[in-house]
C-alpha cells in the first residue's frame, strides 16, 4: 500500500504543446499528490488553462505523458476515459454553464449523464450541492444569464462537484469575486476538501487563496514549471519573476493579512 498512497494522483512528464509556431509548453513536469490543494500560478498567457485542458483530455499534447490516477489520459479507450472523467470535475475559467438549463439542471446534468438515479433523488442531491456552494434557494431555478458573475462561478463549482469527484480542477475560481465572497469561496473549497477528501488543482492569481488554502504552489513560467513547493519555499526562490510575484506589494499585503490572522 505504501507506494500507492505515495504515487502522485496527477503526473505530468515532459509535456510539449504548441499552437502553430507559438510554443506554450516545452517540457512541463508536475506531480500532484493525493488529497492536496495545489495552486498553479503564472503570468497571463503562460498556458495555465492550456495545461488544465490537456490534463483533462480536452487538448492533445504534442509530446509528453500525462497520468491521472496512474493511467495515461491519452492512451485510454472511450470507455476508460468515461470512467476516468467521472472521477474528476472541472470548473472552467468563464463558468461554461449550459445557458439553456437552470442552475439546478446544470448541476443535475453530470448525474443524468453518468448515473441512473430516480428523478426526485437527483433533484434533492443537486439541491444540496447548490446550497453547499452558498447559492440562495431562489437561484436554483434561474438561468445562468440571470446570475451575477460570482454566482455563475459558484454554480460552475457546484456542477464540478456534482458527482463527488476525487479531483476538482478549478480555473481561477475566485477571479471576479468580492473579497468577502472570495474568502468564503476559499473556506468552502477547504471545507469540502476535508469533508470529501478532494484533491484540488487550482489555477489562481489570488494571493490570499494561495496563502489561505493551498498546500503547495507551482509556478508556470518560461514554458515550464519553474518552481514547486509550499508558500514558505516559494518566498525563498530567487528567480526574478517568482520573487516579484511573491514579494510584490500585493503579495506583502496578503502575507501580512494571513500573518495577523494567525496571531
Amino acid at each position: 500500500m505504501e507506494d500507492d498512497a505515495d504515487r502522485p494522483i496527477i503526473r505530468v512528464r515532459g509535456l510539449v504543446k504548441s499552437f502553430g509556431n507559438h510554443t506554450v509548453h516545452d517540457g512541463v513536469d508536475l506531480d500532484v499528490r493525493r488529497g492536496e490543494i495545489i495552486g498553479i500560478v503564472g503570468g497571463s498567457g503562460t498556458g495555465k488553462s492550456v495545461l488544465l485542458h490537456q490534463i483533462v483530455g480536452l487538448l492533445k499534447p504534442d509530446a509528453g505523458r500525462i497520468e491521472v490516477f496512474g493511467e495515461s489520459v491519452r492512451d485510454t479507450s472511450d470507455e476508460e476515459y468515461r470512467a476516468l472523467r467521472r472521477r474528476w470535475g472541472v470548473m472552467f475559467q468563464d463558468g461554461a454553464l449550459f445557458s439553456s438549463l437552470t442552475v439546478r439542471q446544470n448541476v443535475e446534468a453530470p448525474m443524468r449523464e453518468q448515473l441512473d438515479l430516480p428523478d426526485d433523488l437527483r433533484e434533492t442531491l443537486a439541491g444540496i450541492k447548490v446550497r453547499m456552494v452558498g447559492l440562495p434557494d431562489n437561484a436554483q431555478g434561474k438561468y445562468p444569464s440571470d446570475l451575477s458573475g460570482g454566482m455563475r462561478k459558484r454554480a460552475g463549482f457546484a456542477r464540478a462537484i456534482a458527482l463527488d469527484p476525487e479531483i476538482v480542477f478549478l480555473d481561477e475560481p475566485t477571479a471576479g469575486l468580492d473579497p468577502i465572497g472570495a474568502a468564503a469561496f476559499d473556506t468552502l473549497i477547504g471545507q469540502l476538501q476535508t469533508a470529501l477528501g478532494l484533491t484540488v488543482f487550482m489555477v489562481t492569481h489570488d494571493l490570499d487563496s494561495l496563502h489561505a488554502i493551498c498546500d503547495r504552489v507551482a509556478v508556470l513560467a518560461e514554458k515550464k514549471v519553474l518552481a514547486v513547493g509550499t508558500m514558505d519555499e516559494m518566498l525563498k526562490v530567487d528567480h526574478p519573476w517568482v520573487h516579484e510575484y511573491f514579494h510584490g506589494p500585493r503579495a506583502r499585503a496578503a502575507l501580512a493579512g494571513t500573518a495577523s490572522e494567525g496571531d
Binding site: I128, Q191, A195
Partner: peptide, 11 residues
C-alpha cells in the same frame, strides 16, 4: 464533517 456540511444544506 461531511454530515455536518450536508446537514446545513439540506433542502
Amino acid at each position: 464533517t461531511l454530515l455536518d456540511t450536508v446537514r446545513e444544506n439540506m433542502p
